[in-house]
Design a protein around this nucleic acid. Structure first.
Lengths: 211, 211
DNA sequence: AAATAAATATATCGACCGTTCTATTTTGAC
DNA sequence: GTCAAAATAGAACGGTCGATATATTTATTT
């Protein structure tokens, strides 16, 4: 049934948008239905689990979309430092373009629902982990040990998320751009260090990101 | 009138706690009144502006409290690197102790209300700025240029906020501890660089945090 | 075209939301 | 003790919330 899938897609898309801007509790089914032009009676048909299930679907969609974008940028950049610069540039511009209403599509709900809905929490956590593994994989290809790369990836994501939040609150995108610059230098330093290496002999104790 | 002030204080304290754990929209007046044991009829006496005004008072209280704690830690630490380590250690432990329910007292509401209540947004922004200037001042005392110090302070705060969020979502405090370690190294590097300096001759182009 | 399932429409539910209102009690000043 | 202000009590407001139930319409299959 085509029509049903279209309705479902519209519901998910609008929900993702509203969750990104307002969060979970500030977004009502009424608003989702009204702004998406979807039939109200269809919500519980497509999402028997109600608002929670709809939210998880929307968060998953957004998480996948951002993962693909991240993958594309990382794949196109010659070096992680260039990638992080590009990502921050895009994020900063998007933030300004939306007049600081849109940030990370998961972050607001993450903080809101982490302690109330285990399902939502787990959904978001898995997508964050996916983003991190993407970053970590790129860093590993530079020669850094997996463990250190994972740490650096978490650190990078944390900084980006925090910068997005500060930018939203300050209504100023410079935290994002500055974070990009700082992280890029960190990546350069880490790359310069571990580049000339080949097949690390045994193990290295968190040698990375050592400045 | 003593009684009134006590009631007011209880309302503010409980509101701050609930905002930190659940956010703005998930916290109702009913819950605040019930859990604080305060008279329901007193809310609009002490806070004619309603929930928004009460929330701002609570956020301001929390912001001041954290500022004082931050000030104490920075004052006691021999070096910014030690300070950031200590802060992260405390934050990580507190996160675990609360079973990952309590993070930054402002962050959740910051993301929620940044686009809905200008008053709340401005309140939070001012406290974040206060925290940053505290960090920046300490870095300046190390010899770093004011502009670079401000950037580094914003970067540090962003990383901490992001790490707190990730820890909450993952239910794992390691992002906080790792962020502390990384930031501490960054601070050491910045300190080592700008320490031997005296009265910078003219201006330096963001030489800080250079690895 | 008939039969079956998918999808939508609509009305309604009880619960809770933030807010307002009018008593009533408590407190401080005289 | 008297009086006015501060503070509390508690009901009640209209509105919206997410969720449910029952019809009705639309599409797919045979």
């Amino acid at each position: 049934m085509r029509k049903g899938e279209a309705t479902r897609a519209r519901l998910v898309a609008k929900t993702a948008e509203l969750l990104q801007r307002q969060g979970f509790h500030a977004t009502g089914l009424a608003q989702i239905v009204a702004e998406s032009g979807s039939p109200r009676g269809s919500v519980y048909f497509h999402f028997p689990g109600g608002k929670e299930e709809l939210a998880c679907a929307a968060l998953s969609d957004a998480g996948k979309l951002w993962r693909e974008r991240l993958e594309a940028v990382i794949g196109a950049a010659p070096h992680p430092s260039a990638a992080v610069r590009a990502v921050c540039s895009v994020l900063a511009s998007a933030m300004e373009a939306s007049e600081f209403r849109e940030g990370c599509p998961l972050a607001t709900v993450a903080l809101e629902a982490a302690s109330s809905s285990e399902r939502v929490r787990a959904t978001i956590a898995s997508h964050y982990a996916g983003w991190e593994s993407l970053i970590a994989a790129r860093v590993v290809s530079l020669g850094m040990a997996k463990r250190d790369a994972a740490r650096l990836a978490t650190f990078t994501l944390a900084t980006l998320e925090g910068a997005l939040m500060l930018a939203k609150v300050k209504r100023d995108a410079t935290p994002i751009r500055d974070a990009g610059e700082q992280l890029a230098r960190l990546a350069e330093a880490a790359g310069a260090f571990s580049k000339p290496r080949r097949a690390p002999p045994k193990r290295r104790e968190r040698s990375a990101a050592r400045a």
